[in-house]
Amino acid sequence: MSDLSGIPRSANPVRIAILQGDARASADPAVEFSTILGSCVATCLYDPVARIGGMNHFLLAEPPSHKSQTDFDEHYGLFLMELLVNEMLALGAAKPRLKARLYGGANLHERLAPIGSANAAFARRFIRDERIALVHEDLEGHQARRVNFQPTSGRVRCLVAKYDAVPTDKPLRRPQSACGEVELF
């Protein structure tokens, strides 16, 4: 499960936790993004020329209450992917240079719907459709993962995590702030 690039780690990293619904990017060599994944997927994007990296953490949400509850809400996953790409571009990354690593998407409960596989499939499809190079994936399976990502080196460490360390494995509804607010001028 470990994916090491051989680049030395910062002695005292500033560790930033990436929680479900977050998307962060950084050009600071001291920063290390960290997350724990069950059914969720984390996308690590890296621009090796600009030395900028970013991570998001998503679980496909249930659609808004007035919509059908039968499908997962890919709008929200797409939003978090776009948010991550935009954070990277704002720091100076170039989309054609981006390289992606995907982690998570475990199916922790055999009796429940394969939420993890749905998240993994969405992430793979997004990366493919956006023509971003997928350089590594560690997806699905039945174990939780802890992922540490150094954004300026692209280095990732992915380890098995204890099941009870996973904060949640239920899809969340879209936040109230993410329901397509319309403002006409």
């Binding site: 929200y76 797409l78 879209r174 702030s177 329901c179 397509g180 607010e181 319309v182 403002e183 006409l184």
Partner: peptide, 17 residues
């Protein structure tokens, strides 16, 4: 611009706009 819509969009709200 005539208006501003925040992603992720809601298809019904977008159509209405």
């Amino acid at each position: 611009a005539t208006g501003w819509i925040v992603k992720p969009f809601d298809a019904d709200k977008l159509a209405s706009a």
